[in-house]
């Protein structure tokens, strides 16, 4: 066999084996699977994003907007109306939960390093929800664009955004690939579009140098709303499914290329978006002690006094190196 034949046969065998694996057949990973997390055996290294603190661990030495990203929870999706909902894969999923405070963000990160360069991909089955509400009068039947009609539920308009992103560094250059599903604005107006920032995330080192000092509820990924762009004008329709206690899982795939430090593709269920023109702004400054940094994070941000939840049933990170 020639080399192309060998490679093709190997890829075919890999696909066949994966498609017969009950856990992996719902994913489309690159050749080398770096991590597989279904959250039925712990949080698997997904941990609250923490801020940088001084030699004594002083709270005041941390950026204020980095102090409260909340510990992820292993959730069986226990709801007031149906009891345990469970996950797509087994009983448990990983839950990121905000506080009931406008602008608050919960963030979980997974920390690796790169042993090669090339295509890098994260896939997930996820769902987003708002905490159910059992109090109030008629006024709680409406929020923003949505009034309860036994189909749409006002909590859908109370969900702000979720984000999938990287934190990567190699050869002295650090950068983030970022895609955000913006569901609604702070007034509950439905947006449901993909967004990306045009600037790099403000860092604790920059605060140390006196370049910024953001408040507690700042959007840490890119604080200025003017630094965000819509991917396109299309509304990304999805399956919130009527009430905050029915959970339908959505497929997400985010493909990037570390060789060119660029975005490649985003897939959300059966919609595929070409991201090759979506910028990945690098830091101008070189960062020490981060060589070959390979982090992925998910975050969820509420824009009102409502707990927003992002549930991850399962996550696969893969690479072609």
């Amino acid at each position: 066999m020639t080399s192309p034949d060998v490679a093709s046969t190997a890829a075919g065998l890999r696909d066949a084996i994966r498609s017969s694996d009950l856990r992996l057949s719902k994913f489309n990973p690159l050749a080398r699977i770096l991590t597989f997390d279904d959250f039925n055996h712990g949080a698997h290294g997904w941990v609250e994003l923490g801020g940088n603190y001084n030699g004594r661990g002083d709270l005041d030495s941390m950026d204020e907007h980095f102090r409260d990203f909340r510990p992820p929870q292993l959730s069986n999706q226990n709801f007031f109306d149906v009891g345990t909902h469970g996950g797509m894969t087994g009983t448990y999923s990983l839950k990121l939960a905000t506080r009931k405070a406008a602008g608050h963000t919960a963030t979980a990160i997974r920390r690796l390093t790169m042993s090669g360069r090339g295509l890098l991909q994260i896939e997930a089955y996820l769902a987003w929800k708002v905490e159910a509400n059992l109090t109030g009068g008629d006024e709680v039947n409406s929020y923003g664009d949505i009034s309860w009609d036994a189909n749409s539920h006002p909590t859908e308009a109370q969900f702000g955004a979720f984000t999938v992103a990287t934190d990567l560094d190699h050869d002295g250059i650090r950068y983030h690939n970022v895609m955000r599903f913006q569901n609604a604005d702070e007034d509950g107006k439905i947006i449901q579009k993909w967004m990306y920032p045009t600037v790099a995330e403000p860092t604790p080192h920059e605060r140390f140098e006196g370049k910024h000092d953001y408040g507690r509820y700042t959007d840490f990924t890119a604080p200025n709303p003017d630094d965000w762009r819509y991917l396109n004008d299309e509304r990304q329709e999805a399956c919130y499914n009527e009430v905050p206690t029915k959970v339908n899982w959505h497929y997400l795939r985010f493909l990037i290329d570390t060789t060119t430090r660029s975005n490649v593709e985003l897939q959300f269920n059966n919609d595929v978006y070409d991201l090759r023109d979506v910028p990945v702004p690098p830091y101008a400054e070189k960062y020490e002690s981060l060589e070959s940094l390979l982090n992925f994070y998910f975050s969820v941000r509420t824009l009102g006094p409502y707990r927003n939840f992002l549930f991850l049933d399962s996550v696969v990170i893969s690479a072609d190196w």
Partner: peptide, 27 residues
Amino acid sequence: RQSQSAVLERGVDLEKVHETEPFETAW
């Protein structure tokens, strides 16, 4: 055995009454 430590408050001023955020512990 699986285990998890969660830092539910990192430095909160106790203003009379404080309740931690709901945390799921079914497992």
